[in-house]
């Protein structure tokens, strides 16, 4: 481990306040998006106006932190102009990179702003050396954010084959659908994850308490889960719900339990493998959450780089359903 590259810590910023917290807590870079369908967390009360983005970029740059702008949805035909405008704006405001998924958006950046770095979003679902090489060859992609489906040894192998940097998720939401290839929300609600940046939109959510004390969580016309009186009801994300099928008695988590990725114990292995950047998920999370998680991982990465045992803060209280997993990183048995 003597020629280790120090990975950048990439932190979520759903609001200007969260961005300042992340910068102050030692983020190497923050990622954030605009208040429209151009980013995959297009939720009410989140994201940045152009003015906020301008000020936030200045704040981040003054603190030595980069700003990566998420333009990681897929413009539907007839609406590509909005995505191009957001690229123009990002270039004008001095963004350090744009995180993109759609070929049209990537091609526009390459043609119009050849000096603006392109990071390939996890939404592009590039999960093989060939897919990644395609995006590097065509658009000069500088970094790929890997889907959360690879073991550390697979990542190590991949890094030897591809001509760009690699960013992996280390903490936060642990969805099992291939990102960028899921239209479950659109099937239920009429709002699309890929085109509108919506995932189980709050406006379509209902909680219904029954006489027996059970609580049903409902999205559109479908019950996503039903919780006993003693259980804490979670948010009705389709791929985190409980369902029934002929092979099972009673409800089961057909896709994945409500559980969070926490790769803190895998950090030395990931650094050793040569990963260039660690991503913390959670633009929908509070400023306090961002501050705590960023500070904990700043400390951990710095300790490892200094050859010390990292003091890993207990982050389980911050995870979804207070349950955590190393996800795919440790073993492929989860598949």
């Amino acid at each position: 481990m003597n020629a280790m590259v120090k990975p950048e810590l990439i932190c979520p910023a759903g609001t200007p306040a969260a961005l300042r917290s992340a910068v102050d807590a030692g983020a190497d870079a923050v990622y954030c998006g605009y208040q429209n369908a151009t980013n995959a967390r297009n939720f009410v009360g989140l994201n940045f106006t152009p003015e906020e983005m301008e000020k936030s970029i200045r704040y981040a740059h003054d603190g030595g932190t980069k700003v990566l702008i998420t333009l990681n949805t897929f413009p539907p035909a007839g609406k590509v102009e909005l995505w191009k405008e957001m690229v123009d704006l990002s270039a004008r405001l001095g963004a350090d990179a744009c995180i993109v998924a759609d070929i049209a958006v990537a091609a526009y950046i390459r043609d119009t702003y050849p000096d603006l770095r392109i990071h390939l979003s996890v939404q592009a679902a590039a999960s093989s050396p060939e897919a990644i090489e395609y995006y590097v060859r065509e658009f000069g992609v500088k970094r790929v954010v890997l889907p959360r489906i690879m073991t550390v040894s697979e990542i190590r192998g991949l890094l030897k084959e591809i001509p760009c940097e690699v960013e992996t998720f280390i903490f936060g939401n642990h969805g099992l659908m291939v990102e960028g290839r899921c239209s479950l929300t659109n099937y239920v609600t009429g709002q699309s994850t890929n085109m509108d940046g919506a995932c189980s939109p709050a406006a379509c959510v209902k909680y219904e308490r029954a006489d027996d004390g059970s609580m049903s969580t409902i999205l559109g016309d479908y019950m996503i889960d039903r919780f006993g009186p003693e259980e804490t009801a979670g948010y009705p994300t389709i791929c985190k719900g409980r369902y029934k099928c002929d092979a099972r008695d009673g409800g089961y988590y057909a896709f994945e339990e409500p559980i969070s990725l926490n790769a803190s114990t895998m950090l030395p292995d990931l650094i050793n493998a040569g990963v260039h950047a660690f991503k913390i998920e959670g633009r929908q999370r509070s400023r306090a959450y961002v501050k705590k998680v960023v500070a904990a991982f700043r400390e951990a990465v710095d300790s490892i780089m200094a050859g010390q045992e990292p003091r890993l803060a207990d982050l389980v209280a911050l995870t979804e359903g207070q349950k955590q997993t190393e996800g795919a990183l440790k073993t492929k048995k989860w598949r």
Binding site: S127, P147, I149, L176, M177, V178, R181, C182, S183, L184, Y187, C239, C245, A247, R248, Y252, A254, F255, E256, A328, K332, K333, W334, R335
Partner: peptide, 21 residues
């Protein structure tokens, strides 16, 4: 039937308490 989502995990195997392998 319309394809809605893809995953690296096999949900058929999961329903039967198996893994993809």
């Amino acid at each position: 039937r319309a394809s809605l989502a893809l995953s690296a995990r096999c949900y058929h195997a999961r329903a039967h308490e198996r893994t993809k392998d």
